[in-house]
Nucleic acid binder design. Sequence first.
DNA 1: TTGTATGCGTTATCAA
DNA 2: TTGATAACGCATACAA
Lengths: 390, 390
Amino acid sequence: MSRPTLASLASELVVSRQTISNVLNAPHKVKPATRARVQAAIAAAGYRPSAAARQLRTQRSMNLGMRLLPATDGINGAVLDRFLHALTEAAQSAGYRLTLFCADSDGDEIRQYEELLDVAGLDGFILTSSTPDDARTLWLQERGTPFAVFGRPWDAAGHPAAAAHPWVDVDGAAGTTAAVEMLLAQGHSRIGFLGWFTGDPVGADRRRGWERAMATAGYGEDVRGLGVEAQDTVAGGASGAALLVSRGATAMVCSSDSLALGAMEKLRELRAGSSVSGQAAGLNGPGGLSAVVGFDNTPVAAALGLSSVAQPAEEAARHIIRVLAYELAGGGSLAATDAVGVDAGAAPAAPAPPERQLLLAPHVVERIPLPLAATGSSQGPTAAPSMQPR
Amino acid sequence: MSRPTLASLASELVVSRQTISNVLNAPHKVKPATRARVQAAIAAAGYRPSAAARQLRTQRSMNLGMRLLPATDGINGAVLDRFLHALTEAAQSAGYRLTLFCADSDGDEIRQYEELLDVAGLDGFILTSSTPDDARTLWLQERGTPFAVFGRPWDAAGHPAAAAHPWVDVDGAAGTTAAVEMLLAQGHSRIGFLGWFTGDPVGADRRRGWERAMATAGYGEDVRGLGVEAQDTVAGGASGAALLVSRGATAMVCSSDSLALGAMEKLRELRAGSSVSGQAAGLNGPGGLSAVVGFDNTPVAAALGLSSVAQPAEEAARHIIRVLAYELAGGGSLAATDAVGVDAGAAPAAPAPPERQLLLAPHVVERIPLPLAATGSSQGPTAAPSMQPR
DNA sequence: TTGTATGCGTTATCAA
DNA sequence: TTGATAACGCATACAA
């Protein structure tokens, strides 16, 4: 009454192991009658092929690897969170398992690849960022190991290798453009941009989307000096917002939720001041407090009622798995000769191969800021009964 | 020049496969000279045993499984983030790999266990919560599959099974007690508690810590009505804080960072009002704004300068792996007969088995709230140069 | 202390 | 269409 194996099932059914194996891996090679009989027995016995044995034979583990980065900001890493969950789910439903690992550095990550490849026989990897001359992608390509990256290799021109591997990314510029359009629709025109210091391409991309949208709307000139950079922190957001306001901005698009959070606080503060002293007019733009838009749609944004650009992390994850699975299944080279329908019918055309490089458009989640002033909502607080032991 | 195997190494070295296998798995059974020679060859060839082959033979995969919950709050799930990273790291350095999976429900989770056990041969699981009559833990115990839980099974009395399995948890009451002590040290005495509605044991535990600490400090009576509950949201925190202030609280300990965040906002708002109108006196307690303490030390808390109780998630993860590894290694039953030192010496006493059930004390991270009013810090914002293409 | 034989559960090759 | 045989890489019992 231990777990059934091919052998035990075979003797029970009085067929060869091979036949059962065929029913599983190449059903069309088995006479429908026997196939049905075997399938019934498989289901009845709850038989499941052993991955280890299968891997030993096929040299494929149906296992993908991904490095788990140390939880840095968290306010920032929220996107990776959703990505990881969706990735696990997508891998699972594609028949793959997901193995996590840690590494101290990119060099160490390569060492882990090597070990995981040799020891566990992983079939491929998912990376969560890369550069044009990334040692990791170079290593993987040289070795011929399938992989896909979440994040495009910026400035890949002149780096044929970087340009060639599969990646999925989110179009940051499209995100800030959409944010600007939302603010324009709300009646704003002096819309600022609040980015971070580091001159990385992601930040530049997001800024570009703002610039483009403002130019398209005909405000290209009005917006001089309304592009500002600060440290990517809440404090940075606050001081950046102060600067923008002093320059006449009535709304702003931020590169991150940290910045946006700081900006929102600062605006609230300025507004409180202005309502008393009457100065700092112009703060109350058409959108009121919602005139701040963040980026990444972090839980904090949701909690605070902060509008934010949402990355389609789930869709990115699903597509990454799609691409990887396609490559691992032969990727068009040894294409679908196996797609024989259960009930005959014309062989369906091989499904179109997934885009090897895909840019996904984010969308803006519009929110109304929390009215912190309002007390005693319907679900207001109550004095709790005294503590109950147990 | 393909990957070396036991056989290829053996013929190269003119020894039997068995000897090499012994060098790896039972070094003391091999003559030092040969052992050294073999080890050198192993290192030189970069030989690594295949996990699949090994698993086929030993029926152990050196693989642990954990369900990845859908990223719920994120403002709340931050603890699980750190836990997961530390878990991966600890598993890795204990020689285990970590496999992630998703499930729609606890029932589905059991189905996944079954599949992962049969197909991939996982050696054990990590759960991130459980109840006294949890179907999952019951199933695992019945099947004899090793597992450990992050989170204790509350009210396990009368549930011998729940009381028996390994778990690690954080002592929430100790956390709120520590928070109260910090506030007392700052000179506060009317310290309130702001918890969430749901009558779950975790919340009750945190409340108990506050109650206990206040009683110990001799403020047991002064604190009537200063225990309040609200929805576990920012808005809930704001209205809860308003209520507490109206009852004379000058400081408060919260059950979550969401609540604390709302409370902080509300305090800031009230204070702004009071400085103008002169009413609402008593708001400016000794600790000023820092008189709010959150729970979980979320990134948001760090970003905002909110004091918060930090769960030792990393330590919990490491201990979970320690317990699991101990069980998987024979757990005292077939204890250490294998611990022969490399250079002889007296056989060291078997290391003490890890606590099967461990309560970890959190600590308070004290922070100074962001002075949002201050502008133009040294790293202030700058007007960015116009966008650079590329 | 070292070597030999066998089997873990599967799939691939080939012959029937 | 089906079945017999070998091999994947390793560890274990046993013999030398």
